[in-house]
Design a protein around this nucleic acid. Structure first.
Length: 288
DNA sequence: CAACCGCCCTGGGTGC
DNA sequence: TGCACCCAGGGCGGTT
């Protein structure tokens, strides 16, 4: 499940293989991944053909390729999306959805996505205080690896909310890039229960949990950030390279590495939350 | 406006 | 062996 580090690995892979190249053959194999494109697959292809890729950018889990006409090819990997660098003659992947071919002899970019929560759209960019971004990204907050990210501003906005800390960490309009896995890891590191009310957290505690999120994500990036060097490798970040480093997510029943208490799983926001019931006590218990 | 819920989508795994 | 069911979850549209 791609979160910020995995998307950044994909961005670097695309940057290494596609910058300066001109798109030519565009084939949409399934309509769903271009569902947000006004005009559908035909419009999608027409707006890409002949355009040169000049930059590969990212904010949170959104990735976009800036084109030479200032449009952007916006990419979201959803849950299961991958961007592969493949020679045109390579056999089709089982869940190949979109082929992006170029006017040279180099490899294609392939969008492969089993569950199709993700997708691609060609969109206009819009000026913001932090530069040009694709229209659908304008409401997405800066991610903690952005040079303009402000911990002070985040702490202020987060403490003004009336919600639980994990909901806030997953709210991409507050801070972007964090998904279910790294949220659980950061909360475990900071010894915070997922439902701790944001308005009662100290500034220092907000700083701590966000810094832990950064540490975990940068660690994952270190592990996965080199796999795109060789040509034709998967540019995806799905390799599971970070699995062994997880302390909470997916660890139900295993002893907490700090105190030995079995990690618990609870249903939360239509997904799962993993936490140590001793290190990360419920706020209801604390108040009682 | 803030908060929050349900839905989208597929295939691997499990239990009967 | 087959089938029903559960589960993964980011983002958006809708409701309260």
């Amino acid at each position: 499940m791609p979160e910020l580090p995995e998307v950044e690995v994909v961005r670097r892979g695309i940057a290494a293989h596609a910058l300066g190249r001109t798109l030519d053959r565009i084939v949409v194999h399934h309509p769903r991944p271009v569902r947000r494109q006004a005009g559908g697959a035909d419009e999608f292809a027409a707006r890409l053909r002949g355009r040169t890729i000049v930059e590969a950018r990212r904010r949170g889990k959104f990735l976009w390729l800036v084109l030479d006409d200032e449009q952007a090819l916006l990419v979201h990997l959803g849950m299961s999306g991958q961007v592969l660098v493949q020679p045109s003659e390579a056999p089709y992947e089982r869940h190949l959805r979109i082929e992006l071919g170029f006017n040279d002899s180099g490899p294609d970019l392939r969008f492969v996505d089993m569950r199709m929560f993700g997708g691609m759209t060609v969109v206009e960019q819009r000026p913001t205080v932090h530069g040009l971004v694709p229209d659908p990204v304008a409401h997405i907050a800066l991610d903690p690896l952005d040079e303009n990210f402000s911990l002070d501003e985040l702490a202020r906005r987060l403490r003004a909310r009336h919600t639980g800390i994990k909901r806030a960490l997953l709210d991409q309009t507050l801070i972007s890039g964090i998904g279910n896995i790294y949220a659980d890891e950061a909360l475990w590191q900071a010894r915070l229960h997922y439902d701790r009310p944001t308005e009662k957290l100290s500034r220092a505690k907000v700083f701590e949990v966000v810094e832990e999120a950064c540490t975990v994500m940068l660690g994952a990036l270190d592990q996965g950030g080199t796999s795109f060097d060789a040509l034709y490798v998967n540019v995806n970040g799905q390799s599971g390279y970070f699995d062994r480093r997880l302390r909470a997510y997916g660890q139900e029943g295993r002893p907490c590495e700090r105190c030995g208490t079995p990690i618990r799983r609870e249903h939360f926001m239509n997904r799962s939350s993993f936490f140590c019931p001793r290190c990360q006590p419920s706020p209801r218990v604390r108040r009682a």
